[in-house]
Amino acid sequence: MNNQKKTAHLNSLIGKISGKQKLEKQIDEMQSYIMELEVESQKLQRRLEKKEKNTKRAISEKQEAEEKLNAANIKIETLQNEIESLKEEMNNLQDIKFRNIEILYPSKIQNWLLKIQSMRSNDDSLITVYLKPGDLLSNLKNPNRILDDIDEKTQSLLAKIESFTGCILFYDTDSVICEVIVPPFPVRESKWEIGKDFQIEQLKTILEQDFKICILQAHAGESFVGIANTGEFENYRIIKSSVKAKHKKGGFSQKRFEELRNEDISHHIEKVQSEYNKVMDGIENEVDYIIVGGDRELTRLVLKDLNHNLPVIEKPMDNKIEKYNLNNILKNALSCRRYQI
């Protein structure tokens, strides 16, 4: 026992002297630190793997977004080009004008009709289109066929025509003739035909009908109301009033002057309405149309307070109102307008 104690004591002494215990402690500490590093390394590895997955997904999403962006940019560029083309086309259409516009009086329209009626073609190339007031080519039966045959210039100009009576198109697909007639009285049925000649029967019917009409032409201070039938006036009134001219200076005097002018115009409107009631007394049921012209705003003011249910046809009539000029007023009311395209 004494020897064993001595040996243990000696070993302890040697260990202390050699630093063995200190080294063992350091080893334990290092192993513990290594384990912590391994745990941290595993955490970092998992984070790295997750980050790599996120990065791959982000790259994939970025590529997808870039593809969509490129597709959107291409679409935008395409649409911009289409818009520019449409703008250019619209500008070109706006620059298109009628080759000629003229008034065809009753005596002249018959000669024009004979020429249209005499036209013939060896194939189905002559198109006749009747449009009621407010109707468009697209409203016709089978519009795609007719729209394919009529060029865009003609379609554009036809849409520009303002008419209370509709219009009639005579169109040759070989571009020999392209004309539009606005008749004096309304087209009753919208239709189209294509054949070896033009269809003028409905137009002839319109021109040959014997309507009783009231003609109203209004101007500030000078207006006309008349009843016509079978190409002559049965009764008429020429209404004249003193209406001040427009004031050209500014200031208070202009305001007062305009008030007095408006009073004169109101008084003139009342006189025209009174004369209208006189010429229409007892015969309103016999009248088919009121044809109006002159100052459009003034004419509408005259009609506004009149108790009537008659169809109104507005025309660009601006004849001098005198007794010797009555025939011209009637001719203008019964005239057609011709548009050459």
Rank of each mutant, 00 (worst) to 15 (best):
N2S: 10
N3H: 09
N3M: 13
K5T: 11
I14G: 05
I17H: 12
K20W: 14
K22R: 12
Q26D: 11
D28P: 06
E29K: 10
E29M: 11
E29V: 05
M30I: 11
I34H: 07
M35T: 13
L37K: 12
L37F: 04
V39Q: 10
Q42S: 11
R47L: 15
R47C: 08
K50L: 12
K50H: 10
E52T: 13
E52L: 14
A58Y: 14
E66Y: 09
K68W: 10
A71Y: 08
A72T: 10
I74G: 13
I76D: 05
E77D: 11
L79V: 10
E88K: 12
M90T: 09
L93A: 05
Q94I: 12
D95S: 15
K97P: 11
F98S: 02
I101G: 02
L104Y: 03
P106R: 00
S107F: 12
S107Q: 15
Q110K: 11
N111F: 10
W112G: 05
L113Y: 04
K115M: 07
D123F: 08
L126A: 03
L131V: 00
G134E: 03
D135S: 14
K141P: 09
R145C: 07
D148I: 11
D149P: 07
I150V: 04
L157M: 00
E162K: 15
G166L: 00
L169V: 01
T173F: 03
S175A: 12
E179I: 06
V180I: 04
P184T: 01
P184N: 04
P186S: 01
D197Q: 10
D197G: 07
F198L: 00
E201C: 06
Q202R: 08
T205S: 15
E208W: 07
Q209K: 10
D210S: 09
F211E: 07
F211R: 06
K212D: 05
I213Q: 01
I213E: 03
Q217F: 03
A218I: 04
A220M: 09
E222L: 07
F224N: 00
F224G: 00
V225N: 01
T230K: 12
G231F: 05
E232K: 14
F233E: 02
E234Y: 05
I239L: 02
S241E: 02
K244V: 04
G251A: 03
F252L: 08
F252V: 13
F257E: 10
R261L: 03
D264A: 02
H267G: 08
H268T: 00
K278L: 07
D281N: 14
I283D: 03
V287Y: 01
V287I: 03
Y289W: 04
G294Y: 00
D295N: 07
E297M: 09
E297Y: 09
L298A: 03
R300Y: 14
V302S: 00
L303F: 00
D305I: 00
N309I: 04
V312S: 04
K320H: 15
K331F: 13
A333G: 02
Y339R: 01
